[in-house]
C-alpha cells in the first residue's frame, strides 16, 4: 500500500517538469482535485489556468503543442472524453499533436458525485479515436513509468488516474511499454485480464479460485491501445476461457478490445466485468463495487461461469 494515485500523478508531473522544460500543465479549475497543483507550485510560469472551459483548454493545448510544448491539459476524465471530445478529435488527434491527456476521477472511486462526474465511457471513446494511445495504469509504479513513456512518445496520449490507493503490483524496476501486457500469475483453466485498478482485484479473484482448485492466469493490460494482442490470444488459446475486468463500461473498453482479439484470432468463452451499460449512481466505493458486481468474488463468479460454458461446449 502506498499513496493515492493522484498524489503520485502530481508529483510525477513535477519530476518530469524538471527533466523536460517544454512540459506545461493546463487546468480547468480542478488542480487541487487532480493534484496538478504540485506542478503549479513548482513551475508557476508553466501552469496555465483555463477556467471552467474544457473545450478551450484542449484547443489551447493543441496550439501550444504546435509551438513545441508538451501540454498536459488536466481535468476529470468525463469532461475530457465527453465535453471536449470534438476538440480532442479534430484539434489534437487528427493532426497527431503531442498532447498528453490525463483523465482523473475514473469509474467507481469518484467520491459520491454521481453520473455527471464518473467517467465510464472514456476508454471506449478514446479508444475509438485514430492516433490516440490509451492506458489505465494498475499501480503507482506503472503510472510513473507510463507518464514518462507518454512524454517520450510523440503524439496524443490518454491515460487514467484512479482516485484510490492501489496495492503495488510491480517491482521498482518495472517499465511500462505501449502494447505490452504483463502476465502476473500463471494458470491453465481460465484467464483473468485486468486493466487499471481492476488488475489487483483480479489477483484476489485468482486466490479465491485457487481455493476451489481452479488455476487462473492473470494478465494486466495497462496499455489498452495498442493492446498486447499476442499475449491475450496466446493465453486465451491455452485456457479457452477469459474474463475481463475494467473500472469502466464494458461497452467499448477493455472487454470489447479483448473480444475483438478473441473473435479474430483465438475464439474463447468470454465474460466481461465492469459497469454494465449504465450510468453510475452516488454511493460509497465498496457499495458501488458490490452494486456493479466488480468485487474479487464477482470476478471469480464470472470465471466459474466462463469455465462452465467452456466445459459445456461440444
Amino acid at each position: 500500500m502506498s499513496e493515492e494515485m493522484r498524489d503520485v500523478f502530481g508529483k510525477t508531473l513535477v519530476e518530469l517538469g524538471h527533466e523536460f522544460p517544454e512540459l506545461v500543465v493546463l487546468d480547468a479549475d480542478l488542480h487541487t482535485s487532480s493534484k496538478a497543483v504540485y506542478f503549479k507550485q513548482a513551475f508557476p510560469a508553466r501552469f496555465i489556468q483555463c477556467g471552467i472551459a474544457e473545450q478551450n483548454m484542449f484547443g489551447i493545448a493543441a496550439g501550444l503543442a504546435t509551438q513545441g510544448f508538451i501540454p498536459f491539459p488536466c481535468t476529470f476524465a468525463v469532461f475530457a472524453s465527453q465535453r471536449a471530445l470534438d476538440q480532442i478529435a479534430v484539434s489534437i488527434a487528427y493532426p497527431r499533436l503531442n498532447v498528453k491527456i490525463p483523465g482523473s476521477y475514473v469509474g467507481i472511486p469518484t467520491s459520491r458525485a454521481g453520473a455527471s462526474h464518473n467517467a465510464v465511457a472514456d476508454l471506449a471513446i478514446m479508444r475509438s479515436l485514430p492516433h490516440m494511445r490509451v492506458a489505465d495504469p494498475g499501480d503507482n509504479r506503472e503510472l510513473r513509468s507510463l507518464m514518462r513513456a507518454a512524454v517520450l512518445t510523440e503524439g496524443p496520449v490518454y491515460f487514467r488516474i484512479t482516485r484510490y490507493t492501489l496495492p503495488d503490483l510491480f517491482a521498482t524496476d518495472y517499465e511500462f511499454a505501449w502494447g505490452r501486457g504483463v502476465r502476473l500469475r500463471e494458470g491453465s483453466d481460465v484467464t483473468l485480464i485486468g486493466t487499471g485498478m481492476m488488475t489487483g482485484l483480479c489477483l484476489e479473484a485468482a486466490e479465491l479460485l485457487a481455493r476451489d482448485g481452479i488455476s487462473a492466469e492473470v494478465l494486466h493490460c495497462g496499455s489498452i491501445k495498442p493492446l498486447d494482442e499476442d499475449l491475450v490470444a496466446e493465453s486465451a488459446r491455452k485456457t479457452g476461457a477469459v474474463v475481463t475486468a475494467e473500472n469502466a463500461s464494458v461497452v467499448g473498453g477493455l472487454g470489447s478490445a479483448v473480444a475483438e482479439v478473441l473473435t479474430e484470432r483465438a475464439p474463447a468463452v468470454l465474460r466481461r466485468v465492469g459497469v454494465q451499460d449504465r450510468f453510475i449512481e452516488s454511493g460509497g466505493i465498496g457499495e458501488l463495487l458490490a452494486h456493479h458486481r466488480m468485487r474479487p468474488a464477482d470476478i471469480a463468479g464470472r470465471a466459474r461461469e466462463a469455465l462452465e460454458a467452456k466445459d459445456s461446449r461440444p
Partner: peptide
Amino acid sequence: QGLSIAVGMAL
C-alpha cells in the same frame, strides 16, 4: 476550434 488553438500559439 481555431481561436483556442490561436490562443495556445500566442501563449
